[in-house]
Write a protein that binds this DNA or RNA. Structure first.
Lengths: 340, 340
DNA sequence: ATGAAAGCGCTAACAA
DNA sequence: TTGTTAGCGCTTTCAT
């Protein structure tokens, strides 16, 4: 059963295809009688317009693409959800592709989406060469989220990893801590590296200095972070506080502290999570809100597409860097005073 | 700057557009010399094929659609992730649309995707009339996930909400519990209603009987569930165990029990969550694995599209109902014996 | 091995 | 108000 086309509807209603097109698209210059007849034919045949053909003709697709590490990651799930909600208001569909942290797959996904004629792209870039993107610059406005790329000229929406981490570490220092461990690092993530630098600079500037024995590496995942924090506390009994560099690691740190019954150890988590306020004590967290990032990024994209409030922004003007504010949510774990 | 087409490449390479098409599609009947020349032109012009035009001509799109409550919900995020991974292997892109539990929006999303010529659909149906789907039956294979619809003839992949709940409640009974509260209900969700029935039947069959004072209603969200469990324990001091009917509610129940310092109260959660094993005691949970649901559903869809292992399955044969197994993960909270 | 022509379903431009 | 024509970028069919 072939799907009906404008032609079929036109034959059924005994009008020209253009008239059907007018009715379907809600144009007003059609007489009520004809409109009615066409509508009946449309309903009878269950006609559904073919947006592929429409897009081909008009030269503009009706989708935007979202390329992320993994949609299963709650952070990116929320981000994507915000993108979808914002895009929907502008009448755009969302296609999704995950990279699995693989730069080659990122490129494949982007290429596929460009072939699919996406109007624009929201991309959480994997580290690597993004030169391939430049050929699309003029045609497919692209906004990077969460992380930036090594080349100029792309709008980017990030949080201030460095500054927010300094804020978190300062918070611990303000509560008397001097031996602050860093857990949850991973060289693969530029964002986490920024947090590491923030941690180091903050301690240096506070005149405390960094002790490498307190810095754990390559333990960004939950299980690794749990092991790491247990080892850290074992090897360094003088540690009084832990800064966890990412959400997944924080879950492990929480568990580790709990298992070791170290309610005396303070903790600040970079990244908020669902049960953070449910735990006892609540986990003090730096909230980097994926919804805000998604909304801001999509708003930028829509502006570039001329679908925002203002006029379309030409590609030549791209390259803006938006820093979405973070906030430190005090819940108890970060306000534990150092034991005297 | 117009994007280059086959025409442009053909002109550049001084061949016909068909030859370019052959090279781009990797057909073999092209001489090495010409192939080389075309390839150079493709690279020089940064030619990217237009899959919209291709799909229009071929009559088949290259995407499947996923329609869910919300991508921000971890359950559906994982499910969608599994769908994407499976679809990608078959060379299909994924478009995503959320319903926000609104039946009207479900229909809008489905309609949009059909217009976009999706090859197939994975749908978590919102309760309501799905008659509108039948017109697409022949053209767009559709698999329902997590919930079924009121009409026959659609493949459905669900978990055994009823049976799994019975299993969970039996587990509590086996540990001596008789006063088992039910928290986290919500009439809007058929799945949760099934769980409620399972709870009731299980208690009846065990000769315990249902006491309505132990059944809380309309508290499916975290904050509501927390209030509900606190009220429940206050009003009914004889309660020794709680069955939480959904994951979000479980977070509230955990918090509530914690706040009330009721480590003597047993708990089983329908739905696993990230910190379930991190808490003390670990939360015994019925795991309904979204990844399994997503994979099975997509495999079914691909089979219907003729992209699976076997031959394409005609729409007339649709209507299969797959029940993905669940398991009860014992972590401690469900094994608390009743206080004597 | 290569090419010319037709047409997928639609809309823009232009008649009538 | 309604209809005709051309053509979006591609693949298919049928030459050469």
């Amino acid at each position: 059963m072939r799907r009906p086309t404008l032609h079929d509807v036109a034959a059924e209603a005994k009008v020209s295809i253009k008239t059907v097109s007018r009715v379907v698209n809600g144009e007003d210059n059609v007489s009520a009688g004809v409109r009615e007849r066409v509508q009946v034919a449309v309903d009878k045949l269950h006609y559904v317009p073919n947006t592929l053909a429409r897009s081909l003709k008009v030269g503009l697709g009706d989708t935007i693409g979202v390329v992320m590490d993994s949609i299963a990651d709650p952070f990116f799930a929320s981000l994507t959800s915000a993108v979808e909600a914002t895009a929907l208001e502008a009448g755009l569909n969302v296609v999704f592709g995950s990279t699995g942290f693989d730069h080659g797959r990122e490129r494949e996904q982007v290429d596929r989406m460009v072939m699919q004629q996406v109007r624009g792209l929201v991309l959480a870039p994997v580290r690597g060469d993004h030169g391939y993107l430049t050929r699309y610059r003029e045609r497919v406005p692209t906004v990077c989220v969460d992380r930036s790329i090594e080349i100029e000229g792309y709008d980017t929406v990030v949080v201030d990893d460095y500054g927010a981490t300094r804020h978190g570490v300062e918070h611990l220092i303000a509560h008397g801590h001097r031996r602050i461990a860093f857990v949850g690092g991973n060289d693969r993530y530029d964002t986490i590296n920024q947090r590491m630098v923030g941690y180091r600079d903050c301690l240096e500037d506070a005149g405390i200095g960094v002790e490498e024995r307190l810095v754990s590496h390559d333990d960004a995942e939950t299980a690794q972070a749990e092991d790491a924090v247990l080892r850290m506390l074992e090897d360094n009994p003088d540690v009084t506080a832990v800064f966890s560099a990412n959400t997944r690691a924080s879950l492990g740190v929480v568990h580790g502290l709990h298992r070791a019954r170290r309610t005396d150890v303070a903790m600040v988590s970079f990244g908020d999570f669902l049960l953070a306020e449910t735990l006892e004590p609540g986990v003090t967290a730096i909230d980097h809100d994926p919804v805000a990032i998604g909304e801001v990024a999509t708003a930028h994209l829509l502006a570039r597409l001329g679908l925002g409030d203002g006029p379309p922004v030409p590609p030549s003007q791209a390259g803006e860097r938006v820093v979405v504010p973070t906030r430190l949510i005090e819940r108890g774990s970060g306000e534990i005073e150092v034991a005297r």
